[in-house]
């Protein structure tokens, strides 16, 4: 393993071509527009797509952040805003990827079904540091609820982010940091 982590800057939304250049293990400083959505919001979004209705944001090339933030204090966009466990979103995700979703930010494993959809359609999965909600919140400059306000912390929000630190966990080739990282450590320490 190299002594340095490769860091790239990325602007969201981004195209399939850009997604396919990203490699598992790269650190990414993400800027631009992303959307926050988690459990209840995923259910609504997928139901709406299945009814053939217009989604409340452009899914094509969009990045979703799985987060249920704590409320904002005065003068801040959001409170604490770290990632939640991604696997709960797995049942909805391949449908969203088929509809053009380009990136997801969360933490933890993804299902084989999701990884296969990512490979096929060129989508990428980023990990943000779970539990680092105060740090991640600093990268979120603006937050606006754009749909499903009744869901409270789970509402759909449009977020303006600046140099949000994330790591490419699973790339478009299906290379998975959650497998490769521990395997590499074990190889280094037990061979």
């Amino acid at each position: 393993m190299s002594d340095k982590i490769e860091t790239v800057r990325l602007q969201a939304p981004f195209s399939e071509r850009v997604a396919r250049e990203l490699k598992s293990g790269q650190r990414v400083l993400l800027s631009g527009v992303i959307y926050s959505l988690r459990d209840a919001g995923h259910k609504r979004l997928v139901e709406l797509l299945k009814r053939g209705e217009e989604p409340p944001f452009p899914i094509e090339n969009a990045v979703l952040y799985y987060v249920g933030p704590s409320p904002a204090k005065a003068g801040r966009a959001l409170g604490s805003a770290g990632p939640t466990t991604s696997s709960r979103m797995d049942p909805y995700t391949s449908c969203l990827i088929r509809n053009g979703l380009r990136g997801m930010i969360g933490k933890g494993y993804r299902s084989d079904e999701v990884i296969n959809a990512m490979k096929k359609h060129g989508a990428v999965y980023f990990a943000a540091i779970g539990g680092a909600g105060a740090l991640l919140s600093q990268a979120i400059k603006e937050a606006k609820v754009i749909a499903w306000d009744d869901l409270g912390t789970e509402a759909l929000r449009r977020l303006m982010v600046e140099d949000m630190p994330v790591t490419v966990a699973i790339d478009t080739k299906g290379v998975d940091l959650y497998k490769e990282g521990p395997d590499m450590w074990l190889k280094r320490h037990h061979d």
Binding site: M1, S2, D3, K4, I5, G25, R27, V67, G68, P69, S70, K73, R76, G79, S80, A81, G82, T84, I129, G130, G131, A132, G133, A134, L135, S137, Q138, T153, P165, T167, G181, W185, R188
Partner: peptide
């Protein structure tokens, strides 16, 4: 490893920010 060190270092920075700004360390309070 650089990746593990980066994560742990970020966790300590996160705690420092949270304590200073009185914002929750993690959104799951």
């Amino acid at each position: 490893g650089p990746m593990a060190r980066q994560v742990l270092n970020d966790l300590l920075i996160n705690c420092d920010i949270a304590a200073k700004e009185r914002v929750p360390m993690c959104q799951d309070t």
